[in-house]
Amino acid sequence: MRLFKHAYKRGIATALLALAMASGVATSAQAASVSEGVTVIPGTYLFDFDTGSLTTGPGADVWWEQITSTSRVLMPYSTAQLAYVGQVGVGGLSFNALTVSDLEALTYSSTGISGGDVGNLLTANSVFAVKTDAGNYGKVLVTFPFFQAYQNNGLGVYWVTMTPTIPVPEADTFSMLLAGFGLMASVVRRRSV
């Protein structure tokens, strides 16, 4: 009988922990890589940072718009948004050090990023971020600007797309979880008497 009670108590604790994890209670912030790679986005093409592929529409995150022969704009597509981050090495910016939490903290917009002759921000070693239409976050490093004729004037990029962090719960959530464990322990104790 005593062995049964011990297994019963352990079963309740395991069930409560599984319930807490299933309901989104996490013990730390986590992010997983969705896609990563190097590509050239040709003029007037759409690109999906979630799948890492050129696309024809659904799922696309950016559109490399050609305005004139020397002016381009990287435009967000559908519900995706962009944020210009800066130039690697300026102000201590490190592409590799950017975390998904850093990307989540940026201010995103549906305004394009200039990549042409007027106000060009998309030069080699510049970094921008994408909040994808699927809700993921991508950090993107420009490997070469569009005016490289041998690359068909496409924008060369290296990107890493990550899932958003799982929110770290408030202290109240842990308090409620501990209160639940206490209540279950008292029920088990009362039944064992």
Rank of each mutant, 00 (worst) to 15 (best):
Y45G: 00
Y45C: 05
Y45F: 13
Y45V: 04
L46T: 05
L46I: 09
L46G: 06
F47T: 01
F47C: 05
F47K: 00
F47Q: 01
F47Y: 15
F47D: 00
D48P: 01
D48W: 01
D48G: 03
D48E: 07
D48F: 01
D48K: 00
F49H: 05
F49G: 01
F49V: 06
D50T: 12
D50S: 13
D50K: 02
D50F: 05
D50Q: 03
D50W: 04
T51Q: 10
T51E: 08
T51D: 08
T51H: 04
T51Y: 03
T51R: 10
T51P: 00
T51S: 13
T51F: 02
T51W: 01
G52W: 09
G52T: 07
G52R: 05
G52P: 07
G52V: 07
G52Y: 09
S53F: 12
S53K: 15
L54M: 10
L54S: 10
L54T: 09
L54R: 11
L54G: 08
L54Q: 12
L54W: 05
T55K: 05
T55E: 07
T55D: 07
T55F: 06
T55L: 06
T55S: 12
T56H: 09
T56M: 11
T56R: 11
T56L: 13
T56S: 15
T56G: 14
T56F: 11
T56D: 14
T56P: 00
G57H: 04
G57V: 02
G57Q: 02
P58N: 14
P58W: 12
P58H: 09
P58L: 13
P58I: 13
P58D: 15
P58R: 11
G59Y: 06
G59Q: 06
G59S: 06
G59R: 05
G59K: 07
A60C: 10
A60Y: 10
A60Q: 09
A60W: 10
A60D: 10
A60E: 11
A60I: 10
D61T: 07
D61L: 08
D61Q: 08
V62N: 02
V62F: 05
V62W: 05
V62G: 03
V62P: 03
W63M: 11
W63R: 12
W63F: 15
W64A: 11
W64P: 00
W64C: 06
W64F: 15
E65Q: 14
E65D: 15
E65L: 13
Q66D: 11
Q66N: 12
Q66A: 14
Q66F: 05
Q66M: 14
I67F: 09
I67E: 12
I67A: 08
I67S: 08
T68S: 15
T68I: 05
T68C: 05
T68F: 07
T68D: 12
T68A: 03
S69L: 13
S69H: 08
S69V: 13
S69Y: 11
S71R: 12
S71T: 14
S71Q: 15
S71A: 12
R72T: 09
R72Q: 09
V73C: 02
V73D: 11
V73H: 03
V73A: 07
V73W: 06
V73P: 02
V73M: 11
L74Y: 01
L74T: 01
L74C: 01
L74M: 04
L74W: 02
L74R: 00
M75I: 04
M75C: 09
M75V: 08
M75G: 00
M75E: 14
M75K: 14
P76D: 02
P76F: 01
P76T: 05
P76C: 02
P76L: 04
